[in-house]
Amino acid sequence: MIITDTHTHLYSEAFDEDRDEMISRAIEQGVTRFFIPAIDSTYTEAMLQLEKDYPENMFLMSGLHPTHVKDNYKDELEHVEHMLANHKFYAVGEIGIDLYWDKSTLEIQKAAFKHQIQLAKKYKLPIVIHCREAFGEVFEVLESEKGDDLFGVFHCFTGSLEQAHQAISYNMKLGIGGVSTFKNGKIDQFLNEIDLKHIVLETDAPYLAPVPFRGKRNESAYILKVLEKLSGIYNVSEEKLAEITTANSKAIFKI
């Protein structure tokens, strides 16, 4: 059984003391494909080291995270473009809009999001979207960029059924992780109305650990709890669910 974690920050400082052991735990349990989203230029070296250490397992993205869109964002976007031009990446991400932490940067967040979508189109890559308290704003940008060359993953999807269908209409898969196991997560109430062909699995490690690890450090091996939850929701075996969601990830990331 091959399981794909489409979103995991394995370079995070949270793993500095046991990174190799944590990755080994995941691989031993069948999680052998890890897609690594970027945050900003300060993490680039650590991401490249991960790829060097695990060349068969790590698939990197390049991008500027919306919470890191600051006054220097144009310099950061130049770094993203430089990396895309000089290294193999599998997506532009994670990118998007986050209005939970700072609403004052909305306009430059939108500008950075739009610019990075255009970079993804230039390099024929998928995008991986971060959206927090900003569905309307994210959909506004996606609407302006929609087309056959716009596709990707709506990471950590926590919206409504209607918003799920809207995301899918822009050629997005829904990234489903630990939130699906939360009592107040809500998405578990309608996920079975979304065809499995639109779903990929993720952890967002070290964040958003699934039940029974909620509140603790998340790690990629915990994706098995997400797999277990979705197996019940869709009434299919965990093996079949892993097969379908890995195939979906291959359709998006082309590997």
Rank of each mutant, 00 (worst) to 15 (best):
I194G: 08
K146S: 13
G175Q: 10
A134W: 03
I255W: 12
V226N: 00
H79G: 02
V128W: 01
E202T: 07
E162D: 14
M61I: 04
E219W: 03
I199L: 10
K52I: 02
N184Y: 01
A209L: 13
Q163G: 10
L201N: 09
E13R: 10
M47N: 01
F154V: 06
E51Q: 15
E13W: 05
M1W: 05
H79A: 11
K88A: 14
F89G: 05
I97H: 06
R132P: 00
A221V: 15
L227E: 04
A251M: 09
K186Q: 12
K74M: 11
P212H: 03
G232H: 02
F253A: 03
V236Q: 13
N192D: 15
G185F: 00
F139V: 05
I168A: 12
N192P: 08
V128Q: 01
D40C: 06
I199F: 05
F89N: 00
L84I: 08
G30L: 02
T67C: 12
K183M: 09
G63H: 01
D148N: 09
D98S: 03
N248Q: 01
P212T: 03
S169Y: 05
V92S: 04
F151H: 13
K122Y: 05
F113P: 05
S12L: 01
N184H: 08
D98K: 03
E78G: 12
L77K: 00
S231H: 04
R132Y: 06
F89S: 06
L99N: 02
E219Q: 13
E94V: 07
K114W: 05
S144T: 09
A112Q: 00
D75E: 12
I97D: 01
K121D: 12
E193D: 14
S62A: 15
A14G: 08
E107D: 15
H82K: 13
I168M: 11
A91F: 07
P210A: 13
P37L: 06
L106N: 07
I2A: 06
K124V: 08
K225S: 12
H198T: 02
E238R: 14
A26K: 02
Y222S: 12
V179D: 11
G232S: 10
A247V: 08
D16E: 12
K146R: 14
P66M: 11
D53M: 13
N248L: 11
P210D: 02
R25Q: 10
F59A: 01
K74D: 08
G136V: 04
E239L: 10
S12D: 15
S62K: 04
E243S: 14
G185P: 13
F89H: 01
H9V: 10
H68T: 10
N86V: 06
S12T: 00
W101Y: 15
R25D: 05
N192E: 14
T105H: 12
G185Y: 02
N171P: 01
G177K: 04
W101I: 03
K121S: 09
I252H: 07
K124A: 13
E219Y: 03
H9C: 11
